[in-house]
Design a protein around this nucleic acid. Structure first.
Lengths: 119, 119
DNA sequence: TTGTTTGTTCGATAAAAATGGAACTAATCC
DNA sequence: GGATTAGTTCCATTTTTATCGAACAAACAA
């Protein structure tokens, strides 16, 4: 978990908790942050992800997402750059982020989802 | 959303909220309920899923899961039988439940998860 | 060094969730 | 009818989260 060079602490892959991740994703602003980051090819700073809310409020949301292991923050000059920890999440919970972001890759709606009882 | 024959109200597929689902899954007892139901071939009653906690507390957790659309409850005699709404969830958020339950079906840990930046 | 920008931390308040006892309801049995 | 079982609802309490202004810190520029 150790604080990294930038002074932020990020959980190790081994200590990720699905519960904490779900809690992190159960807020609409945090979900918007995750979706924006997923759609971006490059890391984004906090200001670009503040959706017009006060800095202190958003700082709180970033902290929750960071502590859950959903995103990674690093300092670049005065800015704090954020990116999804997609590789780690995909290793630890394959399919989770894809499902959240709607990148199906799985049978789409209308197709034959796996079902216990035949249709 | 209408209350069904059994007197319980369950959300329609169209009104599912990812946020509400995440909130429902952000509690450890609720996650245990979901996992137990996923592992069971048949619906389970509330008593079998109470993990030794008071009835009123668990009733609360069942209500949250039901309202989020995660499970379906129906009366059978004095008992309330619960089952995962797996088909609906799979249609609406393909891969989500599989990811939660650890049924990968996706590249497993150590394999080549889709990555934006080549390894 | 003073000022600016970007974001964190602090602290107080408000809102939301969780907990569990007690009373209650519905189905079932005797 | 009375007793039992299974779970819900009500209510009060506690715990956890969210919100946001204000003070603060770090990096940088003039």
């Amino acid at each position: 978990m150790a604080r990294d060079e930038s002074g932020f602490s990020h959980p190790d892959e081994g200590t990720l908790s699905l519960e904490a991740i779900f809690h992190a994703l159960s807020d609409s602003y945090r979900l918007r942050i995750v979706r924006a980051l997923a759609a971006s090819a490059v890391p984004m700073n906090c200001g670009d992800l503040s959706f017009g809310r006060p800095k202190s409020s958003m700082s709180h949301h970033f902290r929750i997402l960071r502590a859950a292991g959903v995103l990674h923050t690093t300092s670049q000059g005065v800015e704090h750059m954020n990116s999804l920890r997609r590789d780690m999440l995909d290793r630890r919970f394959p399919g989770l982020m894809a499902a959240i972001l709607g990148e199906t890759g799985q049978p789409a709606a209308g197709d034959h989802p796996r079902r216990l009882t035949p249709a």
